[in-house]
């Protein structure tokens, strides 16, 4: 299967280790992380991470839901 690129924006409650959890989340599910950007939201305690991912996985949608297993996840958007 061909590798495709996915860009996902994840709004999180900013806490140490949240980034590690997100990276772990994608690695466990067969994604490779190409780049990560952190964007300050202006709102206290909230930041947005933009992940560029490579994946052969088709069922990306269902992983969107599963990102909410990380309690700090507030919102997920595909770009």
């Amino acid at each position: 299967m061909k590798e495709t690129k996915k860009v996902v924006s994840i709004l999180v409650f900013d806490k140490p280790n949240v980034l590690i959890k997100l990276i772990g989340f994608f690695e466990k599910r067969g994604y490779t992380v190409e780049s990560i950007n952190l964007i300050k939201t202006g709102e206290k305690e909230k930041v947005r991470y933009i992940f560029v991912l490579n994946t052969k996985e088709k069922s990306f949608e269902k992983h969107k839901n599963q990102l909410f297993r990380i309690v700090e996840t507030l919102d997920v958007k595909f770009l």
């Binding site: 590690i20 959890k21 772990g24 309690v71």
Partner: peptide, 14 residues
């Protein structure tokens, strides 16, 4: 211990 328990807690605090 926060690193060790990261995958088995809902969340943790140092």
């Amino acid at each position: 211990i926060t690193a060790i328990t990261l995958p088995v807690t809902k969340t943790n605090f140092l």
